[in-house]
């Protein structure tokens, strides 16, 4: 039996292929999540009563149920009404919808922390509501939400492992497959865990330096 180190090198290519699938899922899901999050966050502050109610139901339904159920509904549930989604896209859409609900809360919190004078001043120079939201509120909201947003990215990376349970061939699935071949299950998952840790560490470092780079004094 080879040492852990040799074994690691042996199975690394397969695991890394899985990891690249993980990153693809996360990247697509986070984009979908931002789009939903910004829209829903803005709608819950600025839109009318119906939109508010609708968005609130969405946010609380997502936050009140496990991501796993949401993925199962998309992948195993929808086919019973004739809608078929591939496991990859089920993972992307499921995680995106999930992330959108949480992100909308970051954005909403960020908007509410912007002082009301900003809107007032924007209106006083003749901007209409849409212009004021677009060029004054949204830029400030995005910067304020950045720290919680990098948190969100960590969460997405970690929870993308759930895609394994709807048969997406990502990192977890690759680990499972390798251990079925080599019977060295413990070491394989340990290695997968290390890869997750490294990805999370790199991404969080990168985001921190991004945060510092686009930092605005006083915001």
């Amino acid at each position: 039996m080879t040492s852990f180190f040799e074994y690691a090198i042996e199975i690394a290519p397969v695991l890394l292929r899985g990891a690249s699938m993980t990153l693809q899922i996360v990247a697509l899901a986070i984009v979908l999540g931002i789009a939903l999050g910004v829209l829903v966050g803005l709608a819950r502050v600025y839109a009318g009563r119906t939109a508010y109610a609708f968005c609130t139901v969405y946010v609380e339904a997502i936050r009140g149920t496990p991501l796993l159920v949401q993925l199962f509904l998309l992948y195993f549930g929808l086919p019973s009404v004739g809608i078929y989604i591939s496991s990859f896209w089920a993972a992307v859409i499921g995680m995106g919808i999930n992330s959108g609900a949480y992100q909308s809360e970051y954005f909403r919190g960020a908007i509410q922390s912007i002082r009301s004078g900003q809107m007032l001043a924007a209106r006083s120079i003749g901007m209409n509501r849409r212009q004021a939201i677009q060029s004054i509120i949204v830029p400030q909201m995005l910067r304020r939400a950045l720290p919680s947003w990098s948190n969100e990215l960590m969460y997405m990376i970690k929870y993308s492992s759930l895609a394994y349970m709807i048969q997406t061939p990502e990192l977890m699935a690759a680990a499972k497959e390798m251990s079925a071949q080599t019977f060295r299950t413990f070491e394989t998952f340990l290695l997968a865990g290390l890869i997750y840790l490294v990805i999370v560490a790199i991404v969080s470092r990168a985001l921190m330096s991004l945060e510092n780079r686009i930092k605005i004094p006083g915001l």
């Binding site: 970690k158 759930l162 299950t185 340990l190 997968a192 865990g193 997750y196």
Partner: peptide, 21 residues
């Protein structure tokens, strides 16, 4: 840092299979 960076699912696997190891 370790527990914040590692997915719970992976942690479960590590413990489950590590114990049998």
């Amino acid at each position: 840092v370790f527990f914040r960076g590692i997915p719970s699912l992976v942690l479960m696997m590590i413990i489950y299979f590590g114990a049998s190891e």
